[in-house]
Design a protein around this nucleic acid. Structure first.
Lengths: 119, 119
DNA sequence: CAAACATATGAATGTTTGTTCATATGTTCA
DNA sequence: TGAACATATGAACAAACATTCATATGTTTG
């Protein structure tokens, strides 16, 4: 589909200078996709609860499932998603796998979210 | 379902002190739900693109649709979601409705997201 | 090596969600 | 007031998703 296949409002209302600037500042599709994917990960309360749990300290899967009162399987599936987006890391310790927060962005993003909803 | 209906790992692995602390620090369900709902809003590339457009300047619905090369209806549906979560505001100016960013959290959250994916 | 434990994963299922299409609401202007 | 324009919205549909269940993989220990 070409760029101009879609309806337009009157020329009066479209300021082509701005439209150009928007195109210029807009990240490319890959980056927009990655960004949306990242925020999607925060968009589930189970995953947010996992992150809050890991704010306290690193933990094995079973401890997380226990703290959140959910099944091991459900938690494991969600940890996979959190790990794919590099929000958490893990390491094996014997039979267990220990998960931990990957970096500080997690906390900053969640804190900003909280201050938004608390306004 | 009671709190202890779910499987547990060996007592050795559950540090009840930590579990208690997690329960203490964990926001209540309403807040977790609201937080997840908020991030869900960021979890769609169309909505992110709308926010990027509004970073440049406030705009009417038609200009946004135009800049993003999408239908008025699709944009309008998404603006409704953005407005519900108070990320954007709007005002009517004659036939048009002008949308604008509600506050700075939007920018901070997106910037943190970008720095995470760029790491 | 076998049993027990901890975690991961594939398939199935019900739910949520983004877009489209048709149409309704609201505003201006002739 | 009626036609034209701008926006909003409900219904429908396909795609994405979270949990469950069954089972596989990996690790320790007797």
């Amino acid at each position: 589909m070409a760029l101009d296949d879609v309806e337009r409002c009157d020329e009066v209302h479209v300021h082509s200078g701005v439209v150009l600037k928007i195109h210029k500042e807009m990240p490319d599709d890959d980056k927009l996709y990655d960004l949306a994917e990242l925020f999607k990960v925060f968009g589930d309360s189970t995953r947010i609860r996992i992150l809050f749990a890991l704010f306290e300290e690193e933990m094995c899967v079973c401890d997380i499932a226990d703290s959140l009162n959910m099944t091991q399987s459900a938690i494991s599936h969600q940890l996979r998603i959190l790990k794919q987006s590099r929000l958490v890391g893990n390491r094996r310790e014997g039979k267990q796998v220990i998960y931990y927060l990957a970096d500080d962005h997690v906390r900053t993003i969640i804190d900003q979210g909280i201050s938004h909803i608390e306004e």
